[in-house]
Amino acid sequence: MAGVNLPSGDESFLTTHWSLVLRAGGEDSERAQLALASLCRSYWYPLYAFVRRKGVAAQDAEDVVQSFFARLLDKQALSQVRPEKGRFRSFLLASIQNHLANLRAAESSQKRGGGQVALDIDFAAADARFRLEAGVLDAQKSFERAWALELLARALSGLEQEYRASERGALFDVLKPELVGGQSAPYADYAERLCSNVAAVKVAVHRLRKRYRDRLRAAIAETVAGEAEIESEIADLFKALAPN
């Protein structure tokens, strides 16, 4: 993705692109399939939330998501992905809607995911999280919100790993509140806690914010067809998170 400042972290999702999936031809389908699987593994929770909001019980929702991925990761299904499908988020939403409709029409619950690829997903934690996220969102809004949270959380955990890997975990822990903008506490307080000075803290805060921004933009870039769509996707994320 030209022009996008990719972070140096080594998470698999950072090395795969939705644009790669979109460009996938017959000769490079293996790579595209891996890329798609990686994206799916990263962003499965919004799908789970969507399916649950559609009234599917927890156990059945797990089956639905797994069978959805099994179908999606089928090579033939992959060949049907076209650039005009737009962003990964939109593609997933449209695809899961179709998948649910097909499942319901065929009433083939016993076939769901049978003998197919199953991604390693912690559904127990997902159910707990879903129950915690109280609200009256409809399925699509729930999907959009969960999607936005997933992006933010992944960028945050990636940043944390990056700092810990470079022995700056304490710096991350102390300055993390500054990622929400403004100034959560006087810089002198941070300086005291970090045994540093105010000037150094200011620079550290600036760098932390910049790294998070780069990571978030890179994560978003993973899910859109081109850099031109990033700003528009960010606007959609704002809408998804805004309270009703």
Binding site: L152, K176, V180, R217, I234, F238, L241, A242
Partner: peptide, 30 residues
């Protein structure tokens, strides 16, 4: 609720940080 913007906070998912403020600080500075 977030002391900055007053919206409800998502439980723990973003390490206690307000998602809206987080997005605003990150995307807004682009």
């Amino acid at each position: 609720t977030c002391p900055r913007c007053g919206t409800s906070l998502a439980p723990e998912h973003t390490q206690g940080l307000c998602p809206g403020c987080l997005l605003q600080a990150a995307a807004g500075a682009s």
